[in-house]
Design a protein around this nucleic acid. Structure first.
Lengths: 111, 111
DNA sequence: CTTGCATACCTCGTAGTCCAATGTATTATC
DNA sequence: GATAATACATTGGACTACGAGGTATGCAAG
């Protein structure tokens, strides 16, 4: 029960989404492409991951949604709230810590 | 079905175990402590993770097990097989790729 | 006009990973 | 003879992430 979440490496999709949205407002489909480009075609967010995370973040007050209509197609633009920015910082720190620790084990170098 | 494993960041515990065992033979309990030390007390492999992974790796032919008895206590020492070394290299490459891609998104720098 | 492709959204079912809790047994400490 | 550290192990479930499938619009080709 309760929040005590851990899971070594969880939350990376969320991190990437928050990071990209912190630069500029984007809509889902655009976001998916942006992840591919920004990661050098190495990572790709499937829609089965993307949309649930987006909705979860919005429900949690980390994202603000705005609906637009461009040439007949519905788009939902997302941008960070203050809370989202805080969440980004927390996840970012966590990622750096964990990735750094893994690299320390792998490389032998220790902080 | 089928092997298609993905999961962004999965397999890190396995990677750490293989890496540490590639340096020297160790037994489970020792391994758990070694992860803590090598990661600067940042990571910690619970026993509920450690032993199942160890058994899985052995079953998959990546590890060789040797039973020892030290002052009444049973210890199971594990060491890498050739297959284990190959598995380590594969997981290691994968980690570098994914971690690098995440850092690329986070940092803006692109290869 | 209808077939096919790209855009754009969404959800369900589940596979797979990891974890906390719990259990056994031995030795050492007090 | 209780407490703690060592040393192994399993079970049950939580949670993430993902593939597959579904709806709908616009556009180009034939």
């Amino acid at each position: 029960m309760s929040g005590g979440n851990s899971a070594f490496m969880a939350g990376v999709p969320e991190l990437l989404i928050l990071k990209l949205l912190s630069a500029r407002e984007m809509y889902g489909y655009e976001l998916a492409k942006a992840v591919q480009v920004a990661s050098g075609e190495t990572l790709s967010l499937g829609e089965g991951v993307l949309y649930p995370v987006l909705h979860g973040l919005e429900a949690g007050g980390a994202l603000r949604a705005r609906t637009g209509l461009v040439s007949g197609r519905r788009r939902i633009y997302y941008s960070l709230t203050v809370r989202g920015r805080r969440r980004l910082q927390a996840l970012s720190r966590r990622w750096q810590q964990v990735a750094g620790a893994v690299d320390a084990v792998m490389g032998g170098a220790h902080a």
